[in-house]
Design a protein around this nucleic acid. Sequence first.
DNA 1: TATGAATGAGAATTCATTCAT
DNA 2: TATGAATGAATTCTCATTCAT
Lengths: 197, 197, 197, 197
Amino acid sequence: MSAKELKKNNIIENALKLFSKKGFYNTTIPDIAKAMKMSVGNMYNYFASKEELAKYAIKYSTNILANQLKEINHKQISSKEKIFLFTKQYLENVKNSPEVIEYFLRVYLSNREVFAQGCEGFLCVSEFVTEVMILLDEGAQSGEFREQEFFTAFSMIMGCLGGFAFLSGEKVLDKDLIEYSNSISENIYRALKSDKA
Amino acid sequence: MSAKELKKNNIIENALKLFSKKGFYNTTIPDIAKAMKMSVGNMYNYFASKEELAKYAIKYSTNILANQLKEINHKQISSKEKIFLFTKQYLENVKNSPEVIEYFLRVYLSNREVFAQGCEGFLCVSEFVTEVMILLDEGAQSGEFREQEFFTAFSMIMGCLGGFAFLSGEKVLDKDLIEYSNSISENIYRALKSDKA
Amino acid sequence: MSAKELKKNNIIENALKLFSKKGFYNTTIPDIAKAMKMSVGNMYNYFASKEELAKYAIKYSTNILANQLKEINHKQISSKEKIFLFTKQYLENVKNSPEVIEYFLRVYLSNREVFAQGCEGFLCVSEFVTEVMILLDEGAQSGEFREQEFFTAFSMIMGCLGGFAFLSGEKVLDKDLIEYSNSISENIYRALKSDKA
Amino acid sequence: MSAKELKKNNIIENALKLFSKKGFYNTTIPDIAKAMKMSVGNMYNYFASKEELAKYAIKYSTNILANQLKEINHKQISSKEKIFLFTKQYLENVKNSPEVIEYFLRVYLSNREVFAQGCEGFLCVSEFVTEVMILLDEGAQSGEFREQEFFTAFSMIMGCLGGFAFLSGEKVLDKDLIEYSNSISENIYRALKSDKA
DNA sequence: TATGAATGAGAATTCATTCAT
DNA sequence: TATGAATGAATTCTCATTCAT
């Protein structure tokens, strides 16, 4: 990876943190530049606009999630175990790299106008969506999961996890995040599993 | 209700629509004034600031949801039926009054800074949260639902519904929203129900 | 004329002076606001953009020239006298209201990109062009002027006058502008007149 | 000519094209560097500033015109024929090397501030002005032209030609440029010629 | 109550120029 | 000579809020 590529990634990481903490519109380019100890003008040598940076950031953060899930999908374990593993992983992200999850929830989902051009459909998050699809398809094929439409299952899994991430951000939970892992997995698994499983 | 109160409500409804469609930061006071056919200055006779208006709007829209759920909670039906009814109702909202749901998802959840002072905890949405609590408590007491912590159940229900509302907004669903009602209810119910139920 | 209209005109006049003196790109909105003793933001309550202001300015200044020439055209005098009168008038403008002429020469003619949308063809200067056309047509019909294509005659008249206005701006002339009036008129008239005249 | 001199000329030619097409302020040093397939920094090894480059460009383009006119002046033909020849030559330039003419009209004449220091008076275009002077003086001495002040005659010739070049740039002419050559020459010649001629 | 002109701080973005390599 | 990352001041435009009427 070239020095320029490395710096681009570095900017993305800083932007990710700031965007997720303060929101897209409350994060200014000078904010990001300051975090980078870089001049404002130089930022534009790396990204043509704040929007472009936001689009790179969603791809970057989604890739992290996609890779984690892909690794889980590759394991020789039951779909139930995959659900439990992914849930745990997700909550650990919320705990340790909250910006990755929060960016998705608070920036990507809420600022459609920013991602309208260039991220149509699921274009910028497709790698992750694909892995969820694989998880669900394999579960259904093995008979572990009920047959159901993708979107209802998808919104169950991600809504459940995303909703909990929000609660965590609201600081209303009294226990450590990870302790909720089994309960949440259980909810998701029960919703998905076939009656014979 | 006084004439002033009526006008306030009218402003809130217009603001709700604009905020949910364009986001908090892309909706200007002149935008809202224009929708109201009212002068900018006069707006400030009703609300002290844009933020205050946003806070009134979250209370207003949450009340609609709370009242709907309260009515369902009062019915003499099983908890399962309540889940199915609420889900249907929610999806009908998404279809017919999208601003109520979208405001919650795209403005309230994503712009923490706006609601930081005055809506701490669940202050501005407490009526609705309370009704969900009642739904869950009664289900647990009757033995229909498993015992589980409130927050895991809450985030499952609302995440599931909210997630689907997002998908609907993304225009990726090919069927009419209402047709998904049973599948979604089924997922939620299965996640909640006790093994004996 | 409403107070707002009056103020708009006042802004146009100030902009005209600044644009013509310093050029379009070296005149900033704060410059114009300062000349108006008005805040920058308020400027935008009158004109949506710097470009829009520049377009209003060309119409405003062209109208002045058009009205002067129209008055001359209405007189019951020979075409030769009209040429002499118009030339004198034009040079008096250069001397007393240089911004009107300079704006045309230094802003309108040179910054095509600014006037590209909205002033296509001669849209923003058509009233003046029309009067020149009338002057030439009537001279040709009365037999005073040779028959010739409009554009060759037009560019001769306006090039001759505009060129001299430039020289005046360059401060290379040693006599008072008005003293050149007859020589210039003579040149223009000789170029136009028919051999029998 | 040294390799460095050659490259300088090459830069000037590219700058001439870009400046005349997009204007001085809309042409950036990176634009010119890109056209040269050269780095931005290296540009500054050849020209100390954008303004200096613009000054070299006016000298370069004026020299082209000056040399053309000088050659015509050296011919053993009547002044009338010289006028006709120069006009034709000028229009051919407009057609085939528009940048040379447009640079003069759209950059040099309109951005006084750029050429203020270093091109005072006619310093940067003096070679060309001198040749026009020679053309006029010889015509007057031979009795072909009327006696008249240099500046009135100069603005007639160059205004007439420049004005037509502008019209050509505006794309309002329906015939090929060269076809207007005789009419324009005729206008200029009639304006200048003595009554006995 | 109602109007809308006025304010001014702050946003994103641009670009001539420099300089370490 | 050549590169292109880095600087930072400057520019246009926006908008919540105020206030005289």
